[in-house]
C-alpha cells in the first residue's frame, strides 16, 4: 500500500497549507472589503473593479447550475446590481465572496423556480448517467459537462464551492443558507452520482 495521502500532498497547484490558504483569503477579503466600502460611497470605479473580479468566478459557478451562458450573463448583472444596492447592508460577518456567492445562488434558484426560460434550458439538458463512461479512466475537462448533467443544481453547487472555489463546509452552509449536515448530505449524494457515472468514488454507508 502506498504512503497515505495527506493534504500537503495534493498535486493541484492549489495552495494546500491551510494557514497560507487562509492568509490569502483574508488578504483578498480585505481588498474586497475596501471595494465594498467605496461602493457604499457610490464609487462606480470600485463597482467596476469588483465586477471584473467576480464575473469570471460567478460565471463558472452559475454555468454549472443554469447551463446557459447568456442567461448566466444576465443573472450576473442582476447579482452585481444587488451588490451595488445592498453594499451598505453588508455587515462584514462573512467573507465578501461568501456574501456574493450566496446572492448568486439564491438568484439562480429563484430563477429556476420562477422563470420559464431557466426551466426550458434545464429541461433541454438531459440529467442522466452517461452511457460511454469507462471505469477508472482518467477524468478530463470534457467530462465536466457530464458531471453537470448527473448532479442536481443543489448538489453541483456544493461540489463546485468545495472543489473549484475551496470553501469549507461551514462556509458553504453559510453561502447556501442550509445546515452543515445538509451540506454533507448533498456532497455524499453528489459523490454517489459521480460514482455511478464513472464507477469511481464513495462507497455506500
Amino acid at each position: 500500500m502506498n504512503r497515505p495521502l495527506r493534504s500537503n500532498d495534493i498535486p493541484l497547484g492549489i495552495p494546500c497549507s491551510v494557514t497560507s490558504l487562509r492568509e490569502e483569503a483574508n488578504s483578498v477579503n480585505q481588498l474586497e472589503i475596501s471595494l465594498i466600502r467605496a461602493i457604499v460611497q457610490e464609487d462606480r470605479g470600485a463597482m467596476a473593479q469588483l465586477y471584473d473580479i467576480y464575473y469570471p468566478r460567478l460565471q463558472r459557478f452559475l454555468v454549472g447550475i443554469i447551463q446557459d451562458r447568456e442567461l448566466v450573463a444576465e443573472l450576473i448583472n442582476d447579482v452585481m446590481m444587488v451588490v451595488w444596492q445592498k453594499a451598505a447592508g453588508f455587515r462584514m460577518q462573512s467573507l465578501v465572496s461568501s456574501w456574493i456567492f450566496g446572492i448568486a445562488y439564491r438568484r439562480a434558484m429563484d430563477g429556476i423556480r420562477k422563470d420559464q426560460r431557466y426551466r426550458t434550458v434545464l429541461n433541454e439538458v438531459p440529467r442522466q448517467t452517461p452511457t460511454d463512461s469507462s471505469l477508472n479512466e482518467s477524468i478530463t475537462a470534457r467530462d465536466l459537462n457530464v458531471f453537470m448533467k448527473v448532479l442536481t443544481p443543489e448538489q453541483l453547487a456544493v461540489a463546485q464551492l468545495t472543489f473549484e472555489f475551496g470553501y469549507s463546509y461551514p462556509e458553504i452552509a453559510q453561502i447556501l443558507q442550509i445546515p452543515v449536515n445538509t451540506v454533507k448530505t448533498r456532497m455524499f449524494h453528489a459523490r454517489k452520482s459521480m460514482q455511478k457515472a464513472y464507477g469511481l468514488g464513495v462507497t455506500d454507508k
Binding site: L12, L144, E164
Partner: peptide
C-alpha cells in the same frame, strides 16, 4: 476526489465577448 477537484479546476474560462457585452 483529487481527480474530481482537478476536473472542476479545468472548467472553461468565460467567453470574452459575453463578458464585454455584459459588463
Amino acid at each position: 476526489l483529487l481527480e474530481t477537484s482537478k476536473l472542476f479546476h479545468a472548467s472553461p474560462e468565460p467567453s470574452p465577448d459575453l463578458f464585454g457585452q455584459a459588463r
